[in-house]
């Protein structure tokens, strides 16, 4: 099995706000697990043999790992700033590779066609050059200086604006997006996509947000994010092949796809291949 590297990573497996003593039965990389409130009230994750797995509580979610994580789960310092609204969006099941779900989140060129008149609109389709790097010290993929014209960038945005973005991949199935915050120039809204790989072709996606927004209710914010992600799902369930091709030749990137190219390269370098298609495996 070549996926040991990914076994040692942390994955979201449930919302802290949704725990019960009976527990929620789910899967992680094919293995059945149970996420529950333990005897002393602390969250617990058990494998099929009823043995406890490592647990971290962060960003409103319960995180676990099937292996022996060598590092702590990443942090998002901005999310700790006071007066942000922390939004547990919930879960969306998608019949796709967990890696495809993350790659789509890193993509802006699809906004005018998939999130038409919300995150993008023709004729504003051009993706200007931006900066992409694999930061060796943090071992993360970063894209900065990403700019895009958006008709309605966020629930709190009125009218079209050019939005600036930064994307970050701190774990193989997680991505953090920092985005211009309409009510607070100078601050970034934080929007995350945490993906739980159920199998190589099936995942539970847990979007999570830390926003400056005083105008919208929690329900409105959740509905906005769910609408956006359900539009993405119609794409994700119709890509061929289902798994993310890591070898060049199968798919043809352009300059607008620099983040995706770096993400694929980073996955391959680490042997993060659960949900990937390799020519020679």
């Amino acid at each position: 099995m070549t996926d040991t590297a990914m076994k040692d990573a942390w994955y979201p497996v449930g919302l802290c706000s949704d725990l019960s003593a009976d527990g929620r039965k789910t899967r992680l990389m094919g293995e059945p697990i149970t996420v529950k409130t333990g005897p002393v009230g602390a969250p617990e994750v058990l494998n099929a043999d009823n043995e406890p797995l490592p647990v971290i509580i962060r960003f409103g979610h319960v995180w676990t790992s099937l292996g022996a994580p060598q590092t702590d789960l990443f942090t998002i310092p901005e999310a700790d700033q006071p007066s942000r609204k922390l939004v547990d969006v919930g879960v969306v099941r998608v019949k796709c590779s967990p890696l495809r779900a993350v790659e789509n989140f890193l993509d802006i060129a699809h906004f005018p066609f998939v999130h038409t008149d919300i995150l993008g609109a023709e004729p504003h389709t051009e993706v200007e050059d931006y900066k992409v790097e694999i930061r060796d010290e943090e071992d993360e993929v970063w894209a900065t200086k990403v700019k895009f014209f958006q008709p309605q960038a966020a629930k709190s945005a009125e009218g079209g604006i050019t939005t600036e973005y930064m994307y970050r991949v701190p774990a193989p199935t997680c991505s953090v997006l920092y985005k211009t915050c309409p009510p607070r120039p100078g601050e970034w809204d934080v929007i995350c996509l945490f993906v739980q790989p159920l199998t190589e072709d099936l995942c539970d996606v847990w979007p999570w947000m830390a926003l400056y927004d005083e105008d919208n209710t929690m329900t409105e914010l959740i509905h906005f994010q769910q609408m956006i992600f359900l539009q993405d799902r119609s794409i994700l369930e119709n890509q061929i092949p289902t798994r993310l091709p890591l070898d060049p030749g199968m798919e043809m990137p352009t300059r607008a796809d620099m983040t995706s190219v770096a993400y694929r390269r980073w996955l391959k370098r680490h042997n993060y291949t659960y949900g990937a298609q390799l020519v020679a495996k």
Partner: peptide
């Protein structure tokens, strides 16, 4: 073929 060469999306959509 029902596949965009860019990211594999079905062209019939």
């Amino acid at each position: 073929g029902d596949r965009c060469p860019h990211r594999g999306m079905r062209l019939s959509h």
